[in-house]
């Protein structure tokens, strides 16, 4: 039985037994190689789930929809390792109760999909440790990272200025991000208007820098923002850089467990203070 069949069966069982009220997974998309979120409420719906290499979205963001979890009933959800990390962060930030989440975990490597053992976020501790130890980057992405790292600050500024010039402030990056759960985003606050709404250089820098800081120590590098960006700004690189910073400086790998303290709000006595005089 293929992975897809196994997981369809598992989802159907969860729904028919009443263990979960809903399973969030992937259904057919607008083209054969695309998937979109599918919300199954009956065992029959479960037959429509896809589990394949095209399932790239991190679905965890749907969990924090207002009121979804307030009835204390469980929800099943298809998640890749980065999605499990998101659930850990959402739990750590009191946005959900991890006991309500039944995880149908899978991972994808070179086009092949395989299942993950475990159903609770806490079942994946060893996987998280392995992910922290072996952070991977695609060759293409690494090449770009190396190129940017090698630039002088002026060149780097010019690079990002050119990239941000394309930004139309559609905030698709925010909408897709599971970490952007605030009821009111700072950019929607216009008293005062810290972040300019118009898409000029200053406003674009303001938005993207605020986003980078709000996601440092929280981004799980699912790549959602990157894929959502209609003008192809390599947003993932910014988050990658911040993730490297917090890992190097504070040994913080976002989403390791449900009790992780936010890196920017906590401190250890031996934290490096190279930037403090």
């Amino acid at each position: 039985m293929s992975i897809q069949e196994q997981y369809r069966k598992k989802a159907a069982e969860l729904l028919s037994s009443g263990e979960v009220k809903l399973v969030i997974g992937y259904g057919s998309g607008s083209t054969p190689d695309r998937r979109r979120a599918l919300f199954a409420r009956t065992a029959d719906d479960a037959a429509l789930f896809h589990v394949d290499a095209a399932c790239d979205a991190n679905l965890s963001g749907y969990l924090v929809n207002e009121g979804l979890l307030s009835d204390k009933k469980k929800i099943g959800i298809f998640l890749k390792p980065e999605g499990i990390r998101s659930v850990n962060i959402l739990a750590a930030e009191s946005q959900l109760d991890p006991d309500q989440i039944v995880i149908l975990g899978f991972t994808e490597e070179n086009g092949t999909v395989s299942g993950l053992q475990g159903t609770q976020a806490s079942d994946f501790t060893s996987l998280m440790t392995a992910l922290k130890e072996n952070r991977t980057t695609s060759e293409k992405e690494q090449a770009l990272v190396d190129k940017i790292e090698a630039m002088t600050p002026q060149e780097r500024f010019a690079f990002w200025q050119a990239e941000f010039e394309k930004c139309i402030k559609c905030y698709a990056c925010r909408q897709v991000c599971p970490m952007c759960y605030c009821k009111r985003c700072i950019v929607d606050n216009n008293q005062p208007q810290w972040v300019h709404t118009s898409s000029h250089t200053l406003g674009n820098f303001e938005w993207n820098l605020v986003r980078a800081f709000h996601l440092s120590g929280r981004c799980v590098e699912c790549g959602g923002c990157d894929r959502a960006c209609p003008v192809n700004i390599p947003l993932r690189l910014i988050n990658r850089r911040m993730a490297n910073e917090v890992l190097d400086a504070f040994d913080h790998f976002s989403g390791m467990n449900q009790n992780q303290e936010p890196v920017l709000a906590s401190f250890k006595k031996d934290d490096p203070e190279t930037f403090i005089l």
Partner: peptide, 8 residues
Amino acid sequence: STCSGCWG
């Protein structure tokens, strides 16, 4: 009204 209760 705008607090999202993250406790940071």
